[in-house]
Structure formats: structure tokens, C-alpha cells
């Protein structure tokens, strides 16, 4: 076992971490704006956001290649403007992880903001609080249990991303070999010992994340419940 190179694990954590931060910020921002407003095409937009959740990862990967490839709209733009090619780089791993984990964050954040009682924010406004203050002291803390659920799920999903990553980033040892890719290529090359090692790691991480999240949510649900205690 000692000859196993741990770099896929660090790479997975780094890419999933960066992807989760990006997904958290954009997911919270978009959910906050879209959840509270009615506009033409809202349903279509939300369906597009959720699409990566139901599409096969190969389709997502294909779409990303189409966008970021040498002849893709974004790929061409990046190449012309910054002389930068995304495909087969560390950045490609992050992009794939962001796209597949975004729906989970968006869905959690959207539900979290919709459950808020609007009167709580109204009360804060009548007390003279600015929009910014209301968001940070009322809306955000109350939505936090839902946002955290989205955060953990997105991270777990980003950590486990395989299909789209393989298509956009390929398997380049030391650059794009995340744990799921390492498992696949270990099996391919008959190295079952290494594959087993990584499988155990991934299962343990996923289990811990979900178990902790369930425990934490239950504890918080009790704390925030509006249940009345009579004296």
C-alpha cells in the first residue's frame, strides 16, 4: 500500500473545494434573486439550471467540450484573449465539477430562501435595517441550515465527478487524475489493490459527509422550530 501516490486525493479535495466555493456563491446569489421574483421565462431558466442533475455526465462533458474546445465559443474567446486553453487542464476539472454540482446547491438554496417568513424581513425593514443588514442578520442565518445542506451535497458531488471530467479534462496523472478517475484507470490497468484503496476512501468520505449533515440538520431543526413552550 505504501507505494500508492496520494496526489489524486489532494487534487480531488482542491478541485472540489474550489468548485464548491464557486457554486456556493453563484447558487446563493441566483437563488436569492430568482426565488423572490416572478418573471417571464423563470420556469425555463430554472429547468436549465437543474439539467446537469438529470443528464448523463457524458452529455454534460460533450456540452462543455463544445463550449470550451478550441473551436467552441468560450474556448475560442479564452484562447484569443488570454492565450489560454482550458481543455485537459486543472481548470477543466473545476469547470466540470462546478457544472455538475451547481443544481444541488441551487435547489437547496432556492428551497431555503422560499421557506423564510417574509414578515421577518419586513419587521427588520420597519426597524430601519438596510437591505444588506437584513440579508446578513435575518435572511442568511435563517436559510443557513438549507444552504449548508446544499454546500455539503455539492462538495460530495464535486468530489465524485467522473464522466464530464474525463471528457473535458482527460486523465493526465498529476494534473487531472482525481480519485474517481484514478479508480477507473486502476481497474483498467488491473491494479485492483489501488482501486480498492481509493474506493474505500471515497465511500468513507461520502458516508461521513451525509451522516454528519443529517445529524446537524436534525439538531438545527429543533433549535429553530417555532414550537411554543407553555409555562
Amino acid at each position: 500500500m505504501s507505494d500508492i501516490n496520494l496526489s489524486p486525493l489532494w487534487l480531488s479535495f482542491q478541485t472540489a473545494g474550489v468548485a464548491t466555493i464557486i457554486v456556493f456563491l453563484t447558487g446563493v446569489f441566483l437563488a436569492r434573486i430568482i426565488a423572490r421574483n416572478q418573471f417571464f421565462g423563470k420556469g425555463v431558466l430554472e429547468a436549465v439550471f437543474m439539467l446537469p442533475l438529470v443528464l448523463p455526465p457524458t452529455v454534460v462533458g460533450f456540452g462543455l467540450l463544445y463550449l470550451f474546445g478550441k473551436n467552441g465559443i468560450l474556448g475560442r474567446l479564452l484562447l484569443d484573449m488570454f492565450d489560454f486553453q482550458v481543455v485537459f487542464t486543472w481548470h477543466a476539472v473545476i469547470i466540470a465539477a462546478v457544472v455538475v454540482s451547481f443544481p444541488l446547491m441551487y435547489q437547496s438554496a432556492s428551497a431555503a430562501f422560499q421557506h423564510d417568513d417574509p414578515n421577518l424581513e419586513h419587521a427588520a425593514y420597519t426597524m430601519g435595517a438596510s437591505k444588506w443588514k437584513v440579508f446578513w442578520t435575518v435572511s442568511f442565518p435563517l436559510a443557513w441550515p438549507g444552504l449548508l445542506a446544499g454546500l455539503v451535497l455539492s462538495f460530495a458531488r464535486a468530489l465524485g465527478e467522473f464522466g464530464a471530467t474525463l471528457m473535458l479534462a482527460g486523465f493526465i496523472p498529476g494534473v487531472t487524475d482525481t480519485v474517481p478517475l484514478a479508480i477507473y484507470f486502476a481497474v483498467e490497468s488491473g491494479n485492483m489493490e489501488m482501486a480498492t484503496f481509493w474506493v474505500i476512501i471515497i465511500v468513507a468520505l461520502g458516508f461521513t459527509a451525509i451522516y454528519w449533515l443529517n445529524w446537524w440538520s436534525k439538531r438545527n431543526m429543533m433549535r429553530y422550530s417555532q414550537k411554543q413552550h407553555h409555562q
Binding site: 417568513d117 414578515n119 421577518l120 419586513h122 419587521a123 427588520a124 425593514y125 420597519t126 430601519g128 435595517a129 438596510s130 442578520t137 435575518v138 442565518p141 435563517l142 433549535r223 429553530y224 422550530s225 417555532q226
Partner: peptide, 19 residues
């Protein structure tokens, strides 16, 4: 804007911040 009106509002369900 609401914030500048200096009006106290007591809501039917009180709207106390639960956290």
C-alpha cells in the same frame, strides 16, 4: 423607503427572529 418612515409595526404572528 420603509426604513426611513419611523413606523413601528406589530405583525399578527409577531415576526420575532427565531434565531
Amino acid at each position: 423607503p420603509i426604513q426611513q418612515r419611523k413606523i413601528g409595526y406589530l405583525f399578527q404572528d409577531y415576526a420575532l427572529f427565531p434565531h
